[in-house]
């Protein structure tokens, strides 16, 4: 079980728990504002963009090359950006704070 904390662009804090699936799925199932997950998680839509809190970046690791290619053209992207459909839920994530980009 991992606890994952989302902070939306309206500064709303949403704490969720999960054991499996992707972080995007968790967010969509719980209606986290700003995460739409239009493509269902195949890394094609960029509607699941989050900024990982810098101090937690080791929990998620950096974006893959394919993610980076997508994020490169997103004006809100920074070095802590991830497409959260590409982050699998695991114990390792426990306590991670994710700022929703949109």
């Amino acid at each position: 079980m991992a606890k994952i904390i989302f902070i939306t662009s309206d500064s709303e804090k949403i704490e969720l728990e999960a054991t499996s699936g992707s972080v995007m799925e968790l967010a969509v199932q719980n209606g986290v504002q700003g995460i739409d997950g239009d493509c269902g998680g195949v890394c094609s839509c960029a509607t699941c963009h989050v900024h990982v809190a810098p101090e937690h970046f080791a929990k998620t690791g950096p974006a893959s090359e394919i993610e980076q290619d997508m994020l490169e053209l997103d004006d809100d992207a920074n070095e802590y950006s991830r497409l959260c459909c590409q982050i699998e839920v695991s114990e390792q994530l426990d306590g991670v704070v994710l700022h929703v980009a949109k």
């Binding site: 239009d38 493509c39 269902g40 195949v42 890394c43 094609s44 839509c45 893959s64 394919i66 290619d69 997508m70 053209l73 590409q86």
Partner: peptide, 24 residues
């Protein structure tokens, strides 16, 4: 079951397909 599939069949960026939700 292609897992990572960053296709642009619905376009990309500003003009991405408005009807994509319906089509999907």
């Amino acid at each position: 079951d292609r897992k990572v599939n960053p296709h642009v069949a619905f376009g990309f960026s500003h003009h991405n397909c408005l009807g994509a939700t319906h089509a999907r």
